[in-house]
Design a protein around this nucleic acid. Structure first.
Length: 654
RNA sequence: GCUGGCAUAGCUCAGCUGGUAGAGCAGCUGAUUUGUAAUCAGCAGGUCGGGGGUUCGAGUCCCUCUGCCAGCUCCA
């Protein structure tokens, strides 16, 4: 028992301990300070309680609240504390699951007939703090399955019993703090003491085990911190994030509008938003022309038969607007995607292997009947425009084409300053293959092509099973919004299926018919969603090349209106979006309006400027930049926009 | 679609336990003739989201529909 073991620290150094040493003892042996802030310990990659003995040689890492793992442990323990508070306040409450999340934690609970209100949340917070002050330990106990079942049967918690069904005897542990015992793998912080400040953030329904056919539990979201300053900081950041909400900014900056008379999820693009959007579209159109894409235009509806052939109609009938019927009872469908139309563009003439790849691009507007509860600003709408293109290529061209699309997507992202995105390879669910069309060999080939293309482009990807489209695997680019919610923007998909369904072919060098492969791709994804996320990303402070109004010319008095208009005209002739504020107001007022509108540049003009053919430059958010000649200013502005717009590939401009 | 919350002027919001609507900004009119984030005054603007009910009386209470918000489920 007193054998000695060797523990290796993250920096590679090692120390000897007696077998059975606890994480806490290890921390203490390094420093008093570390022992105080340690919350858990990683032992050969497994995060454990500090109190658990370590029996063997291991690589270890002590986690504190400077590590994500430390916070996860801390918040998981906080979830238990909230559960204890709930149990005290509402006897008979049943518990589902209560994990830590990115920022904070939640617990799914069954409160019976009880409804919680905002006042209840405060009461729960108070109770949590009261319990935390008791400084009770989180005690781990390994139990047999039989004992665990007996415990929760006695307690009458059918949710925990159901969770137990999936667990194997010998791997089950309970954690107890105070009067609350939970089925839990752990780990936990040593005691409730460091949980000093709590805020319950919201209440929502959540289906038990994520299954909408099962009971909906009450999910309570909360966050906790050891220090008040940290909680205040967190809440302040949350508030700042709300200020960046694209729905709020879209209204303030007059970018888009939703009218209940038009319908929910159907955005109206206001003049300024349209300017922004068109600028983005032009940017991509130019880039696509350079890369050999051919623009096409197709109608907004198509025969139902088209979508039956493509397979979309049966798969997604409940998320489509219902078909329109004509006299012959032949239905038409408002198009929910562009690909079936594009197959028919391809099929308009025969293709030789020498023609391929054929890259057909369309900013195609599609309509999907999204569930009402899903609609959210511009990020989830019922009518949206996809920067869609379909590449029809030979099987041997798939990888190269795929790589070129990755390049284009990365160019779009970097040009708009999205540095923090996730690239996700979305694969089939191997346990549920009947959800997909096409044969195994094609799927394997497609999945492999994506992996290789991503690897060759040096893309850091994660792979998720079950996220593929029904016709093929994809590479999705995800970005977070102001509130940390993740949205899929760009997507690249390989499809062997549609060419087959529509009997597309090309003539090979062997004079035989061959099947082309389709690559569906959209770097923006949906323009609506992309712009929504972009607004939040830059907080409405668009780079100059994108700003709906780039320059606001502000005469200091009426007598300089003519000069202001001349300057504005010169800017417009130089290709800029400039406006003059000729209102009968003091310049301070005009500056304020332009600042509030987040206009990148304000040019103040008065007697001095008029005499010198100059402007006094003010940069949004920065202030007075001094005066310069009009021509010099125009040259400077041209240089700025050129630098951003002539995408060097690595030019974040936000 | 589900659970919960919310809905008052163009915008942001006030309106206690029911006694027939208010402010600031924006808008309009006039005065002011202006130098780096709000000049002053006046005017106008709402069947309190729609419908139904309770009540002598409903912005306020109840039902219902619609929309929005948070989350869940879904997402070609």
């Amino acid at each position: 028992m007193s054998a000695s073991i060797t523990l290796t620290f993250p920096d590679g150094s090692t120390r000897s301990y007696q077998s059975g040493v606890t994480g806490h003892e290890v921390a203490s042996s390094i420093s008093e300070g570390l022992a105080r802030v340690a919350v858990s310990i990683g032992v050969d990659g497994e995060t454990r309680d500090l109190a658990r003995p370590i029996e063997q040689d291991a690589n270890i890492q002590i986690f504190t609240l400077r590590d994500d793992e430390g916070w996860a442990t801390y918040w998981h323990s906080s979830a238990h504390l909230m559960a204890e508070a709930l149990q005290e306040l509402y006897p008979g409450v049943k518990f589902g699951i209560g994990p830590a999340i990115d920022k904070g934690f939640y617990y799914d609970v069954d409160l019976g007939d009880r409804q919680l209100t905002a006042d209840d949340l405060e009461a729960i917070e108070k109770k949590m703090m009261e319990l935390a002050k008791r400084d009770t330990a989180f005690e781990r106990r390994e139990v047999s399955k039989e004992e665990a079942v007996a415990y929760f049967t006695e307690k009458g918690d059918e949710y925990k019993l159901e969770l137990l069904e999936d667990l194997e005897d010998g791997t089950i542990s309970f954690y107890t703090q105070g009067d609350f015992t939970d089925l839990c793998r752990g780990p936990h912080i040593p005691s409730t003491k460091p949980i000093k400040y709590a805020k319950l953030l919201n209440i929502a329904g959540a289906y038990w085990r994520g299954d909408q056919d099962r009971k909906q539990l009450t999910r309570l979201y909360g966050i906790t911190f050891p220090k008040k300053g940290e909680l205040d900081d967190f809440l302040e950041k949350l508030e700042l994030a709300r200020q960046r909400d694209h729905r709020k900014l879209g209204k303030e900056l007059e970018l888009f509008h939703f009218s209940r008379k038009v319908g929910s999820g159907l955005p109206l693009w206001l003049p300024k938003g349209t300017m922004l959007r068109e600028t983005l579209v032009d940017f991509l159109k130019n880039e696509q022309l350079r890369r050999g894409y051919q623009p096409v235009i197709t109608p907004h509806i198509g025969r139902l038969e088209l979508y039956k052939t493509s397979g979309h109609y049966p798969y997604y009938s409940d998320s489509q607007f219902p078909p329109m019927m004509d006299d012959e009872e032949e239905g038409y469908l408002l198009k929910p995607m562009n690909c079936p139309h594009h197959t028919q563009v391809y099929d308009a003439k025969p293709h030789s292997y020498r023609d391929l790849p054929v890259r057909l691009a369309e900013f195609g507007t599609v309509y999907r009947y999204e569930q009402s509860g899903e609609l959210a600003g511009l990020t989830r709408v019922r009518g949206f425009t996809v920067d869609d293109a379909h590449i029809f290529c030979r099987p041997d061209q798939v990888k190269e084409e795929f790589k070129d699309v990755i390049d284009l997507t990365l160019l779009v992202f970097s040009s708009l300053g999205f540095k923090d995105f996730k690239a996700q390879v979305s694969l089939r669910d191997p346990s549920n293959k009947e959800k997909y069309v096409g044969d195994d060999a094609q799927w394997d080939a497609a999945e492999q092509a994506i992996r290789e293309a991503a690897a060759e482009k040096g893309l850091d990807t994660i792979e998720i099973e079950g996220e593929a489209a029904f016709y093929g695997p994809k590479l999705d680019f995800m970005v977070k919004d102001a509130l940390g919610r993740e949205w899929q923007l760009g997507t690249i998909q390989i499809d062997y299926n549609l060419p087959q369904r529509f009997d597309l072919w090309f003539t090979g060098s062997d004079d035989q018919k061959h099947r082309p492969v389709m690559i569906h791709r959209a770097p923006f994804g949906s323009l609506e969603r992309f712009i929504g996320v972009l607004i939040e990303h830059c907080g409405g402070n668009f780079p100059t090349w994108l700003a709906p109004v780039q320059v606001q010319v502000l005469p200091v008095g009426q007598s300089f209106n003519d000069y202001a208009e001349q300057v504005t005209e010169r800017l417009r002739e130089a290709g800029f979006r400039a406006e003059a504020d000729l209102r009968h107001e003091k310049v301070g007022y005009k500056i304020r309006s332009a600042e509030v509108a987040k206009t990148p540049y304000m040019l103040i003009v008065g007697q001095q400027e008029m005499d010198a053919d100059s402007v006094s430059v003010r940069r949004h958010g920065e202030g007075d930049k001094g005066s310069m000649a009009v021509d010099a200013y125009i040259a400077q502005l041209q240089a700025e926009v050129k630098a951003a717009f002539q995408q060097g590939g690595d030019q974040p401009v936000a």
